[in-house]
Amino acid sequence: MITAKQMFQLRDTGGAVAISEEEAPLSKERILRSQGEEVGALGKMQVKDLRAWFGKTEIIKGVSLSVADKRVTAIIGPSGCGKSTFIRCLNRMHEVVPKAHVAGRVLLDGVDIYDRKIDPVKIRSRVGMVFQRPNPFPTMSIRENVLAGLKLNGVKVSRPDELVEQVLEQAALWGEVKDILNRSGASLSGGQQQRLCIARALALKPEILLMDEPCSALDPIATSRIEELIHSIGKVCTIVIVTHNMQQAARVSQYTAFFYMGELVEFNDTDILFTKPGNQRTEDYITGRFG
C-alpha cells in the first residue's frame, strides 16, 4: 500500500497518467519508488497494441498495458467497453468464438502468446480463468471438479487428496465441503460453486488468474468472501479481474485500468486512479456521471 505522501510525489513527477501508450505505463522507477521492489518482479505480462474483433466490429482498439507480477490488476468500465473481450485475449479464449480474431502482441514472461509456434492449449493451463457465471462440471463430483484440469489432461497427480485439500483450502471452501467431496459440484450454492471454480483453476498452479466479473452472479455475502479470496490469492498469483463494480476494484486491486469504448483511457495505481483520476472521462465514470 502506498502512502499519501508517495502518491502526491508521484503526481508531481507527472508519471501517473497513461493513455494507450505504446510502452507499458508502469515505468520502472515509479514502481520502485512506490513499492520498493525489484524490477524483476514486474511485468508478468505485457500487452502491446492489442486489437480484437468480432467479425468486422472492432471491440478492442489498440490497448497496451503491463500486468504486474503477484499483484491484482482490476479492469473497470461501462458495459460493452470491451473489458471481458480484453481479458479473454490474455489466455487466447477470445478466438474460440466463431468469427473472432485478434491482432497485436501479448507477452507472457517475454514470449508472445500469439506466436505461431505457441499452442493456445498450453497458454490456457498457465493463464487460468474464472467466468462470470459459476460453471462447475455438473457430471463430476466436487473432488473431480478440482482435479478436472489435471486428470482430463492426462496428468498423473501423485497425491490427489493433498492437492484437493490444499487448493480447496486456498479457495476458502475446504471447511464447507470436506465431508461432501463426492457430491455433485452442481449441488453447491452459487457462491460455493464460484469458489469451486476458483479452486479448479488454482489446481493447475496458474501463473496468472483471469477473473471475468466473478461476483456479478452472486449475493453480497458470497461476493465479500470471493473478494477476501482474491486478496489472499493475489499475494501468490498474478490476478487480472474485470468488474463493473468500482468499489470492488478499489477494494481488491493494486492497479486499475479504465476502459471506455474499446480503448484504455487510464491505467494507474488503484489509489491514484480513484482519488486523483488524470482523465476527465475517468473522473466522470468513477463519480457516477455515466456508465
Binding site: 455438473p138 489432461n153 471454480c197 483453476a201
Partner: peptide, 23 residues
Amino acid sequence: VPNSLREAGLALGMAKWRVILRV
C-alpha cells in the same frame, strides 16, 4: 449443453477433443 461448460474446459487448458469427450 451450455457453452459455459465448453469454455470452462478450454480455459483449463484442455484440448477441444478432450473437452468434447470428457465434458
